[in-house]
Simulated assay, not measured.
Amino acid sequence: MTRPDTPNPKEQRPEVVVHDRRRIDPETLQLREPDEIPPEREGGEHVLEPPDRAGVLEAELAERTADLQRVQAEYENYRKRVRHDQEAVNEIATAKVLESLLPILDAIDRARSLGEVNGGLWAVAEALEETLAGLGLERTGTPGEPFDPARHEAVDHEISDDVDTPVCTAVLRPGYQLGTRLLRPAQVSVTEPPEHPAAAAGAHES
């Protein structure tokens, strides 16, 4: 029996109130409307307001826009790489075809030097050279131009006081290039000044 002056434990225990503030209903698994969330707890304690849906949507839109712009930039870079690779492959294929035709051009040059290119052969030679030029084939090597080891192959040389730098005196066999790609260097005869290192080395060897 409980004494009258002893407080009842049930009367001292505060009532526990549980507020379910979950956005998803655990039973229906549906998104609850904002008004289903109690705006205040008992006793005047404020709870967090639901996030601003317009702000959330704007942030998501900005993020998706940034993702789209990044994907577009990556795709544009990919297109540029593919186009560059295709151009490189086409140039290599064209260069191989043109290289295989260089002996024919050499034969035409020899026939010209002998005066044997005339009539129908002359028309064929002109049509062939125009077609190859249309594909980008360029002849290199001109008498009097400066000697360039990257573009010329010196097969003969002489020393002269009339020149200050090595020059191509004669072109023994023309060179050809496709754009910036050198298909074959021109074989030339080079004239050098006496003080040029290559001329001095040649004189010492002889």
Rank of each mutant, 00 (worst) to 15 (best):
H84G: 15
L182H: 10
E153N: 13
E145S: 05
P38S: 15
R13M: 12
E63I: 10
R22F: 06
G175F: 00
I37C: 07
S189M: 15
I108Y: 02
P194K: 07
A59N: 02
E195G: 06
V17H: 02
G134H: 05
T142M: 13
K80P: 08
H84D: 14
R3L: 07
R79L: 12
C168N: 13
A127I: 07
V124A: 03
Q69P: 02
E27V: 06
A88E: 02
A203F: 02
E60L: 14
T165A: 08
A201N: 04
Q187Y: 04
D67W: 13
E153Q: 13
T191L: 01
Y176W: 10
L102I: 03
R110E: 03
D5Y: 13
V171Q: 00
C168F: 01
L29S: 11
G136V: 06
E76W: 11
V163S: 09
L183P: 00
A88G: 00
A62C: 04
E99T: 01
V82E: 15
H152T: 00
E15K: 08
E195T: 02
A59K: 09
G136I: 06
P193F: 05
D106V: 00
P166S: 05
E11W: 10
R151P: 00
L102Q: 08
E138D: 11
I159L: 05
D106I: 00
T6G: 07
A133E: 13
Q72Y: 05
R3H: 15
D106F: 06
L114E: 14
A125Y: 01
D20Y: 09
V17Q: 11
G55M: 03
G115P: 01
P50Q: 13
D162E: 14
D85M: 13
I108A: 04
R112V: 09
R173I: 00
G120I: 14
E11P: 00
A154M: 15
D156N: 11
T94L: 02
E63M: 10
P34H: 09
